[in-house]
Every structure is written in structure tokens, then in C-alpha cells.
Simulated scan of single mutants.
Amino acid sequence: MDIIDTHCHVIAEDRGRYPRAPIGGKTSTWAASRPVTAEGMVAGMDESGIQQSVLVQATTAYGYDNSYVLDSRAASPDRFIAVGTFDPLAPDAPARLASAIAEQGLAGVRLFTSGSTVPTQGEWFAAPESYKFWRAAGELGVTVCLQMRLGPATRQLVDVLERFPTVRVLLDHFGYPDIADSPARAGKEVAELATHPGLHLKLTHRSLEPLHAVGEEAIEFLSPVVESFGAERIAWGSNCPAAEQSLTELVELARAVLAPLPPAAQEQIFAGTARRLYPSLGGYGS
């Protein structure tokens, strides 16, 4: 099966060339304790059967300095594309976005509004000052990864999706739905967002682990989400090495949870959606 990892992070050994500047003021635990270099990521991909990966900027290590993901992509263009962290509130955001895509080589950008080093959910991604960025992203056809938590900022997300319906938004980690408490309720809450055609979902271990833990109840979450969004709007990502498991284990986790879905749906989640969101990945085998 064609497998693309839409969410993995790389950390350089050379701190002089790639200094740490984490958002939130401190490096995340995983980036400090189990970093993986670009070379190490390729080795893991080979072992696990992953053809290509989307290197998502390790925001909790490098902040807005996307140098390492860009250099890693340049060194292995057949295996990697790069998504960099971006500031949509910058006065010159539209021009900077155009330059980041056309000149620097980013395939997409990421807005980091909440995470391990930023525990309070930010609402700034939907502020009026961000509108020029969102408009430019739609005009340029740029996929915007959004790291946020549903619930605290769902209203802001919906506002963006309604104002800018042509923008492709890829919601990191499904927005951290509370699957453990009630798979059915969490699935219904996520499914309700499918009315916004620009919204896509990134399925990582953050949701796969609780889905695996609830066993047969996982289908109560998966069924409404897949039926409403379609597998064509869901993409798998490992979240390696923020996830403690190896890439091989993370692939197997995804296979196990998604096993009840038809093979055609699994193919979309493992690769088809990624290739549409990021055309620079090319076609299978290219």
C-alpha cells in the first residue's frame, strides 16, 4: 500500500547551525529526549514502508525558523516535503506566504495555536488581523495545518471556514476530540464540522491510541466522521517522534484501527488525501 506520513518532526544534531527557539519559551519533552534527525527519519520510513513524509516544523524546538525542515527537504526531495510554522498576524503576511511557497520551497504552513509548550488555546488565528493571510492562502492554494483544540476554539475555527471557504485547512490531530469519554459523542461533534468543504482532518496517534483503547466502540467514532467527511478529507500522520512508538508501530496502530473501513477508504487515508493536499508529493511511484 502507498503510505504517506503527513505529520512527522525532525530535529538536527547541529545546534549551532539550527539553534533552538521554541514557541512557549521551552523545548518540548519529546524534542529534548527522543529527537530524530532527517537521516534517522528516512531509515524509519524504509523500515516501516512509508514512501514519503511531510516534515512538519518542530515548533516546540525551532519556533518560526523553518531552516531545518527546508534543508532536509532539499537534501531528500524524493522522500520529503516541508510544512513550516507561520505567523498569520504579520503585517506583510500575504507577501511572506507567497515567498515561503514560491521561493523558500514550503509545501504548506502551520499555525501553532496550542500545544505542549502553549497550554492555553489561542484565538488569534481568527482575529481580523489574520484575514489577509487567510485570503492569500486561498488564492495561492496553500494547505494550512492548524494545531488547535476543538471546544475552546471551535467557534473561531468555524468563523474562519465560513469567511474563507476556499482555504484548505488540515486540522492537526483531529482537534484532540475526547474519544475516551464517549467515542460516539466525540464522533458526532467532529462530524458536524464536515459541512465546511475546506476542512480536512489529520489522523494521528493522538486519536488512534484512544480509539484502539476503546476496542469495538471505535467504530462509533469512525463511522460518523468518515461518512460525513469522506475518506478523501482524512489523512494519516505518525506524529513521530512526539509519539513514543517507532514508525513501524505507528503504522501498525493505524492499520489496526482502520481495519473495519473498506480498503478504498484506507487507501485514501494512508496516501490519497495527502497527494491532493500536497501536489508536490507527485503521483505514486513518481
Rank of each mutant, 00 (worst) to 15 (best):
M1L: 13
M1S: 10
I3W: 00
H9R: 09
A12S: 13
E13Q: 11
E13K: 10
R15M: 01
R15Q: 04
G16Y: 04
G16P: 04
Y18Q: 12
R20N: 04
G25H: 06
R34Q: 10
P35R: 04
P35S: 02
T37H: 10
V42E: 05
G44S: 10
D46F: 00
E47K: 14
G49S: 05
Y62F: 14
Y68W: 14
R73D: 01
R73I: 00
S76Q: 13
S76D: 08
D78T: 11
R79T: 06
F86Q: 07
A93E: 11
R96N: 12
A98G: 09
A100N: 15
I101H: 03
E103K: 15
Q104N: 13
G105M: 07
G105N: 08
L106D: 08
T113V: 13
T117R: 01
V118S: 09
T120A: 12
T120P: 00
E123T: 10
E123D: 02
F125T: 10
A127G: 12
E129F: 06
K132T: 14
R135P: 01
G138K: 09
E139I: 00
L140W: 12
G141S: 05
T143C: 15
Q147V: 10
P152W: 09
A153L: 00
T154D: 09
Q156P: 01
V160I: 13
E162V: 09
E162P: 08
F164R: 13
T166Y: 04
L171Q: 12
F174M: 15
F174N: 08
D178R: 15
A180M: 08
S182A: 07
A184E: 14
A186W: 11
V190F: 05
T195S: 12
G198D: 09
L201N: 03
L201K: 03
H205R: 05
H205G: 14
S207A: 15
A213M: 02
I219V: 09
V225A: 13
S228C: 08
S228I: 03
F229H: 11
E232P: 00
S238Q: 07
E244G: 09
Q245D: 10
V251P: 05
L258W: 02
L258A: 04
A259E: 15
P260G: 07
P260I: 01
A265W: 00
Q268M: 12
A271Y: 14
G272M: 11
A274N: 07
Y278P: 03
